[in-house]
Computed example of a mutant assay.
Amino acid sequence: MSNTLKFKDKSRSQFFATVRKRVDSYFIEKAISPHANGAMWVKASFFLVGYTLLYGLILSNLFGLWTMLGLAILLGMFAAFIGFNVSHDGLHGAFSSHTWLNRLAGSSFYLLGANPYIWKITHNIVHHTYTNIPGHDEDIELAPGLVRLDPQEELRSWHRYQHWYTIPLYSLASLSWVFRKDYVKFFKSQIGHHDNSSHPRREYIKLFVSKALYYFFFLILPFILLDLTWWQLAIGFVLMHVAEGLVLGLVFQLAHAVEGTAFPIPDEQGDIQAAWAIHQMHTTANFAPRSAMAAFFCGGLNRQIEHHLFPKVCHIHYPAITAIVKSTAHEFGLPYLENRSFGSALLSHFRLLQVLGRSIPAETVQPGQKNVARQVPVSQE
């Protein structure tokens, strides 16, 4: 496979230019900023204050073991919600028009035990550009050899059971992030085919200092202050991250690994024969678009189509621009994939894991080709 990949828009589609113009006009006509509004500040404050309060309650040593365990699990969930609702927008530059404020919001990622700098490379640059492209998007390489989300990966005997064991594996995602993933990604020479061989000196310092601080505040300090044995503390820490990892893993995977989403293969020249925006429409799906609860807790990640097309627009505005994006997609004859609920999306993900564990699905064609891909029906509004 070529180390470089280009999106070749031979049809010269006007889809993205049209939808971008219409979305821009929406903000101009409404005289509102595409960044955070009052409701967004309330959301961000709720999750940050809730996280701080939960951490403080645990360190207060005023509760019994089972209560502290429940608080630890809830703390893990709040960490994931901060990632969705605060960190994600900040790291995309969507939270504010001020760079320093985006940087501050993005720094909340440290509260998850994760590194914002590495996330911007793996997510903003690689995943958002090369979504679902085998060999380029490492988000479909969850556990190479064990979980098969890349249709080109060798099919092994145990993959036929992956629809049963993959979802529980998501619960380990956060622990991997804290102790392994950031280090591995930071020192890899390439992420996908992105050159990752050189980093500013300050990022080395930030990586190790932030990790040391996280270990101190979540392992050493609780051991000093709480009436817990080391193994009781370890159980609480692990279950906190199990909750965090399961929430993170499920929400992210339901956007790109459900029935109907494509896993395009570059042509012989290493190119995708479609415009980038059209590629996004074939590789991305929404879920629970009418759920106020999903919108509040998932930070707009239940509307991944709008996010991938407009990553610098704060997620608080996604419900308002959804109708624009959907109608424009239909106007240009493009798919607009969505599952009506979280449950239907989860079931669709389960079925796709089952298919990928047994065969190479037809959705591996180029999105620019005539729709010979088996567009498995996704629940429509």
Rank of each mutant, 00 (worst) to 15 (best):
152 Q>P: 02
357 G>R: 11
370 K>D: 13
154 E>Q: 13
148 R>S: 07
272 I>F: 06
263 F>P: 01
153 E>V: 00
358 R>P: 00
269 Q>H: 10
276 W>S: 10
181 K>A: 14
75 L>G: 09
198 S>R: 08
66 W>V: 07
23 V>W: 09
324 I>C: 02
62 L>R: 10
195 D>Q: 01
61 N>D: 15
35 H>G: 01
135 G>D: 00
288 A>Q: 01
201 R>K: 14
100 W>C: 06
157 S>P: 00
165 Y>G: 13
365 V>Y: 01
192 G>Q: 09
116 P>I: 03
242 V>R: 07
58 I>K: 08
315 H>Q: 10
321 I>W: 08
133 I>S: 14
114 A>K: 02
121 I>F: 06
269 Q>L: 08
255 A>R: 04
15 F>W: 13
46 F>E: 04
45 S>E: 02
116 P>Q: 10
252 F>N: 11
342 F>G: 05
214 Y>C: 08
134 P>D: 02
70 G>Q: 08
22 R>A: 09
96 S>C: 12
19 V>L: 14
331 E>H: 15
45 S>G: 13
282 H>I: 05
220 I>G: 13
56 G>C: 12
317 H>V: 07
35 H>A: 09
373 A>M: 12
107 S>H: 02
66 W>L: 12
283 T>E: 04
194 H>S: 00
82 I>Y: 03
210 S>E: 08
349 H>V: 12
109 F>P: 03
359 S>P: 02
168 P>C: 11
151 P>C: 09
190 Q>G: 03
211 K>W: 11
311 P>H: 08
147 V>M: 08
212 A>D: 04
49 V>S: 11
230 W>L: 15
274 A>I: 11
142 L>T: 04
48 L>S: 15
97 S>K: 14
99 T>G: 11
267 D>F: 05
169 L>T: 08
340 R>C: 01
275 A>N: 14
3 N>P: 05
158 W>G: 01
374 R>P: 00
293 M>R: 10
349 H>W: 01
71 L>H: 06
152 Q>R: 15
80 A>D: 02
114 A>F: 06
45 S>V: 05
47 F>G: 02
62 L>I: 10
275 A>P: 15
163 H>D: 03
112 L>G: 00
357 G>K: 05
58 I>T: 04
181 K>G: 06
65 L>M: 02
361 P>A: 13
168 P>W: 15
293 M>H: 00
26 Y>L: 13
79 A>W: 10
211 K>R: 15
163 H>G: 00
189 S>G: 15
306 E>G: 07
151 P>R: 01
239 L>A: 12
39 A>D: 07
243 A>R: 04
323 A>P: 04
226 L>W: 06
149 L>I: 06
